[in-house]
Design a protein around this nucleic acid. Structure first.
Length: 456
RNA sequence: GUGGAUGUAGUUCAGUUGGUUAGAAUGCUAGAUUGUGAUUCUGGAGGUCGCGGGUUCGAGCCCCGUCAUUCACCCCA
């Protein structure tokens, strides 16, 4: 029998990891709720027809597909089997797939429940998603996303509040050095117009790699994709412009005098900045990045991406506005905007930066050690009273040497141990040991309760 | 889908031009300490060297295959 394993790109999370992950989830959830978002869960599986075609051709290949139940080959036309064409066969033997992100299932939900939903609808969703690509650093086949989206309004207040939420989430997690990159798809469209090419998406994909592969390679890629030298030069004249946000805006405005799209993008972006000011927020952490494109093709307005500085991991959060997402499900003209936090990458980054606070390593506050059946039995009602005061308490369940019990408490990083022997049982003065300092004192239960309640 | 790297104790790794019985640290366990952990000292358990084949008198080491892990590309959060 081989040792058991788990599938590539998946992970188990032990108690220590879970405590830290919960810390991240809890903080994100609190922020989402504070901004008026309500929870939603959707199934792990969606109909394949819901998922395919939403993420581009590459995305379709990364979908995990679920085989039909029962004898799934029985009714397949044998001539189709003979072709060995897996794409052709997929639709015959699989009609369900694991969700690839949370936005598309959300759009599906909105369309299905349009009658009951009050718009604007603000929902958050914290669930795993699956992608069948090859795992590497910061990339998993199963990972959690924390999404907050608003649909049914095109108010730029939503964009501004997304920026505020990002700031709050990072503040609560203790991450100080991060950058919120913002751009607007219409600005990119304006850029595309300058090249005179119709091939917008190729331009976006190439430009998005700018900070990763550099100007030379981006130009090379654009050339091989059929962009003209003059157009490329005009794009880079803009991309290479250095200056403050306001200077960038002014510069772009001069370039976009003939571009309706470009002008619209700039106006939106300026409005978001102005709204942030009205909230009393600063532009700290916010960067106008004209090269930011983001891959998902459904974005149409402002786009966001958050990077933690000085950590070699991809972006930990991203989002944007999409005007047409519900359109593919038959509900046009519903605009939405959303943000997604990648918990797994946040975890990796925070671990690398040693940012998890002590509280995130949740364990019992106190353990009760004892010597024999009588003291063990006596310790049970002590435990009960401590728990009634809201103190996380555990009793060492076996009668064994004190050394072993303390060893256990030490390994679990339980900060306090109450030692109960015959003496303690007689006079009610319990021995409270502080495991960190190694000190101990004798106290009555009530005082121990007070002390631990304050400490925890 | 493409390319590189790595597979030796529970874990992290060492292992000489191929040479006899494969090591260390850490962890685990028992004791020094019959009411005190994380530090100290002593003992013990723990390995089909990923798997299959080949070369050789002899393979952890060389060759071929295979599987797994991992990094990068493509792509993407």
């Amino acid at each position: 029998m081989d040792k058991p394993t788990i599938p590539k790109g998946t992970r188990d999370f032990g108690p220590a990891q879970m405590a830290k992950r919960q810390f991240i989830f809890d903080n994100i959830r609190k922020v989402f709720q504070k901004y008026g978002f309500q929870p939603l869960e959707t199934p792990a599986m969606e109909n394949l027809s819901t998922l395919t075609g939403k993420y581009g051709e590459e995305g379709d290949q990364l979908l995990f597909k679920v085989l039909n139940s029962g004898d799934y080959l029985k009714d397949v036309d044998s001539s189709k089997l003979e072709t060995k064409n897996s794409k052709l066969l997929t639709s015959e033997i699989s009609e369900k797939g694991l969700r690839y992100d949370l936005t598309v299932p959300f759009a599906r939900y909105v369309v299905m429940n349009r009658g009951e939903i009050t718009f604007p609808f603000k929902r958050y969703q914290i669930q795993p998603v699956w992608r069948a690509d090859r795992p590497q650093k910061g990339r998993y086949r199963e990972f959690y996303q924390c999404d907050a989206d608003v649909v049914g309004t095109d108010s730029l207040i939503c964009e501004a509040e997304i920026v505020l939420m990002i700031k709050e989430v990072f503040k609560s997690l203790g991450i100080k050095d991060f950058t919120i990159k913002i751009n607007h798809r219409a600005i990119l469209s304006g850029l595309a117009e300058l090249t005179g090419s119709q091939n917008e998406s190729s331009l976006f994909v190439a430009v998005d790699k700018l900070d990763k592969i550099g100007e030379g390679k981006v130009k090379e890629e654009l050339r091989t994709r059929g962009f003209e030298g003059k157009g490329i030069d005009s794009v880079f004249a803009i991309l290479n412009f250095k200056g403050s946000t306001q200077q960038k805006i002014d510069f772009l405005r001069s370039k976009f005098s003939n571009s309706e799209k470009g002008k619209k993008g700039i106006a939106d972006f300026e409005e978001v900045l102005s709204l942030l000011q009205s909230y009393g927020a600063t532009e700290q952490h916010v960067e106008f990045d004209i090269s930011l494109a983001r891959g998902l093709s459904y974005y149409t307005g402002c786009i966001f991406e958050v990077k933690i500085n000085n950590v070699a991991i991809g972006s930990v959060s991203g989002g944007g506005r999409y005007d047409n997402l519900t359109g593919v499900f038959g509900l046009p003209d519903v605009s939405g905007v959303g943000i997604s936090f990648g918990v797994d990458r946040l975890y990796d980054a925070m671990e690398e930066l040693s940012l998890f606070p002590k509280e995130a390593q949740a364990t019992s506050t106190v353990m009760i050690a004892h010597f024999d059946d009588a003291t063990l039995r006596y310790s049970l009602h002590i435990a009960n009273q401590l728990r009634e005061s809201g103190i996380a308490t555990e009793v060492y369940p076996d009668v064994t040497k004190l050394k072993k019990q303390l060893d256990y408490a030490n390994k679990k990083e339980i900060p306090f141990v109450i030692v109960i022997g015959l003496d303690e049982m007689k006079d009610g003065m319990l021995t409270l040991k502080n495991m960190e300092k190694g000190e101990q004192e004798k106290l009555i239960l009530k005082d121990i309760g007070l002390k631990l309640a304050v400490g925890s």
